[in-house]
């Protein structure tokens, strides 16, 4: 299951990571080098061990109610950009421009 340049570009897009072309090429080699060591897992007799990870095994569940943590600093002291109590992000490219240019 060798990783290709397209694979690296695909997972970089999924992970929202911008990669320069030369970095993509070096990552192909690095990831293939690492994943080659993982192939040994395919040979393991897993017997009755389930292939379905049970995330809740042994975990104490709590009531699904809000459990707010008191913040000692206002959000606008650490958020990159806020307005009227909302976090601002760049305009989505699929949205048309309006008179109110910039973030929205």
């Amino acid at each position: 299951m060798a990783v290709s340049e397209n694979d690296v570009r695909h997972v970089a897009a999924l992970a929202r990571l911008g990669l320069a072309d030369d970095r993509v090429q070096s990552l192909v080699g690095e990831l293939n080098g690492i994943l080659a060591h993982m192939d040994v897992l395919q040979q393991v007799d897993i017997g009755g061990a389930s292939l379905d990870p049970d995330a809740t095994q042994g975990m104490r569940m709590r009531e699904d109610v809000p459990n707010p943590i008191a913040l000692h600093r206002a959000r606008d002291e650490f958020a990159p950009s806020m307005r009227d109590g909302f976090f601002l992000v760049p305009r989505l490219s699929t949205h048309g421009s309006t008179d109110d240019e910039g973030e929205g």
Binding site: M1, L35, M38, L41, Q42, V44, I46, A49, S50, L51, D52, P53
Partner: peptide
């Protein structure tokens, strides 16, 4: 399946 699920089983 090939990587994550198998790793969790091991």
């Amino acid at each position: 399946d090939a990587y994550y699920k198998r790793a969790m089983a091991v």
